[in-house]
């Protein structure tokens, strides 16, 4: 099923706020083999609430996670994430292209704190695979 082209510009209702705890950051850091000192979270930590927001988006558009490859990701930080932050993500669809039967979806996720201030912006490229073209991906 091709992706509905009218989703470009659409913003999805935010997932429930994500509370950044020391334990949550430690689990994230230790999974990469590093140790955590209780300070700022790593720069890619916002993928935690951003991934949740992506699942909300996929569900809203009846898109199957098993057909999605993560093509690219960037985070642009206004400040580091720290324990105690309560983060909310607003995901919107910025771009949509179709190449070789695959839909290339560009999303922008605004990550804000409890005061509504922007903490970081995530941009992702999601490849929604067409029916006959399974590709390597991450």
């Amino acid at each position: 099923m091709p992706v509905d082209p009218t989703i470009v510009g659409r913003t999805y209702p935010p997932a429930p706020p994500h509370e950044v705890t020391v334990d949550a950051v430690r689990a994230f850091v230790e999974a990469t083999g590093a140790s955590y000192d209780g300070g700022p979270a790593p720069a890619t930590y916002p993928i935690v609430p951003a991934f949740s927001a992506m699942l909300t988006f996929l569900e809203a558009e009846a898109l199957d996670l098993s057909r999605i490859d993560h093509g690219a990701q960037e985070f642009r930080h206004e400040r580091p994430v720290v324990p105690g932050d309560v983060l909310t993500v607003a995901l919107s669809v910025a771009t949509l292209r179709t190449i070789g039967g695959n839909d290339i979806i560009g999303t922008t996720s605004a990550v804000t704190d409890a005061d509504g201030a922007l903490v970081c912006t995530g941009t992702a490229t999601l490849v929604h695979r067409g029916p006959e073209d399974p590709e390597d991906g991450a």
């Binding site: 994230f28 590093a34 790593p42 890619t44």
Partner: peptide, 25 residues
Amino acid sequence: LALAARYVDESLGETGRIATIGAKF
């Protein structure tokens, strides 16, 4: 990408200095 961030953080000796990080997979 988290390993790339870990590498930068540990090379700098601190976490929290990265302003932007990104890549294509």
